[in-house]
Design a protein around this nucleic acid. Sequence first.
RNA 1: GCCGAUGUAGCUCAGCUGGCAGAGUGCGUCCUUGGUAAGGACGAGGUCACGGGUUCAAGUCCCGUCAUUGGCUCCA
Length: 648
Amino acid sequence: MINITFPDGSVRQYEKGTTGLQIAESISSRLAQDVIAVGVNDQTTEINRPITTDASIKLYKWDDAEGKHAFWHTSAHLMAEALQELYPHVKFGIGPAIENGFYYDIDTADMVIRENDFPTIEAKITEIVARKENVVREEISKADAIKLFTEKDEPYKIELISELEDGTISLYRQGNFVDLCKGPHLANTADIKAFKLLSVAGAYWRGDEKRKQLTRIYAISFPKKKMLDEYLLLLEEAKKRDHRKIGKELELFTFSQSVGQGLPLWLPKGTMLRDQLEDFLKKVQKKYGYLPVRTPHIGQKELWITSGHYAKYGKDSFQPIHTPQEGEEYLLKPMNCPHHCEIYKVSPRSYKDLPIRYAEFGTVYRYEQSGELHGLTRVRSFTQDDAHIFCRPDQLKDEFMKVMDIIFIIFKALNFENFEAQISLRDPNNKEKYIGSDENWEKSEQAIIESCEAKGLKARVELGEAAFYGPKLDFMVKDAIGRRWQLGTIQVDYNLPERFELEYTGADNQKHRPVMIHRAPFGSMERFVAVLIEHTGGKFPLWLTPEQVVILPISEKFNDYAKEVVNTLNMHDIRASVDERNEKIGKKIRDNELKRIPYMVIVGEKEAENNELSVRKQGEGDKGTYSINDFAQLIVDEVNNMTNKFLA
RNA sequence: GCCGAUGUAGCUCAGCUGGCAGAGUGCGUCCUUGGUAAGGACGAGGUCACGGGUUCAAGUCCCGUCAUUGGCUCCA
């Protein structure tokens, strides 16, 4: 007999060789149905693997990441099996489970797989699932594994095996398909009830652009058909919220081929929205003692040689602009910090002056690869809500925490209730990738870690994700349909002050180096607006939305009254207009609903006579009758409620 | 930059095995002057992304370029 310890600490005895499935059966038949994988002493394994020693176990279901992982991993093998049967010549790369589904990388030789081929592949998968094949684990020696895959002529597998330790090589076999794999897997492919191929793309073998590009097929699968339907619905919802689509519909921004790729043009309504965001952050920053600055869009190349950016990014940037007479070289600025450093240097600084916080909505230009451009989230010209804090080392932690406060205010004001944070440190095994002394790196990293602790912020720590000049704290928000977006960032930097020879005079009358904090709560205005669009589906909060109120006259006879109303509302700083079109009221309501205008005001004979308004709220309908002043007050109060509490 | 897909009216899209370029919506004019999610008529609007080729004939087939797009790589 062996002792099995459950997550709640209870211990039960089972016969030696009992499987996870049998343990689940001994608890409930429902659990036995749902269990997908078993954690045995923190190692995830199959539910049909015999357990031979005392162990603590966890039974994983679909709701557990480990369960999904095993499910999708087997699904990847299943898809590979189908591909092998349909296209016997394909060579297999890797086929892992990912956050939402899985993929398999295959070498198709000259054959091209297109999305048109998906129904054929899906039909084959359905056929295989009906065979109810068992998934069987085998362990073989390295030599045997190489022999097997040499016979099968699978060069990518051989490459993978040759890098593995001998003795622990496992294979998983189902039907005629066998794959090198650590596992764990489902016991039988029949559990995969719903399957959908999602997209096909090129992917370099092992992520190396010098190696062959394989065909990657993305897919997802579920234990129930209903779950697949729900997932597809979510994809539909994401499509509806696509900021590129809504940006066009609501006339927020556009791109022009004549202007150039990745160079967004902000239309009046988009600009109004963005201005609201900028004004709000300016007010918050004012409260926190920031000083506004402005700097030009270009600067001498030497500026970025000094900063170290030129050495790292110069070749892959927009190339220098030359002055016609002197042949001097200027760069479009890829970042604002060097300019701000020069502002710092404008006069000698005392320790009493610090911290100094310079803020600028600074537009920068980066040559992103053409394949990487995407709507407003990845562009070649964007505006950072940038600021640089120059402080004494003893002020660093305090300043860092104040920046965190600003970021929390922004997230709260914009209803991003769910967010995560990531501390990005340098890769200790790869120090040559970074500039700056070990000592400074350690100090910077420590400051970030301590600030998070002091603020009670649980942050994931990632090694090797730091910027090349310093560690950083990044914030990821979760939007209304559960997708994660990276937004704000805070970075500690000892290097630039060194490179620009920034100084202050200490109380000891000696020269000292300040520390710099780079920070951008929104990240970039372009990206932030994109995320905001997808988060809200274009239904912006009242204080941000470009058009807050539209007046809908019942007929043209009441256009004049409607214009009076607009004038009054405008006097209260309310963004309002009249829908003067010769349309019936139903049509006007419909069109303005689709434009996601928060308040519609209907005016006809009754309202004009009594100096009243009939108010209608977007998505809710008729709200009854108001006097003009009461309505104006309603809007003003609603806007104030949304923002003023953060500015008090 | 690389691999795949796509590019037709302002927008969303149809246009089969090559044979006179279409719809809806938007826009303009007129009729209608209305009460809480689409009133009606007429009209304008196209270098079928661009360049080349095959063909009696190309939106359609082939090649190239550009852009968009799904990924890969990259991301100060």
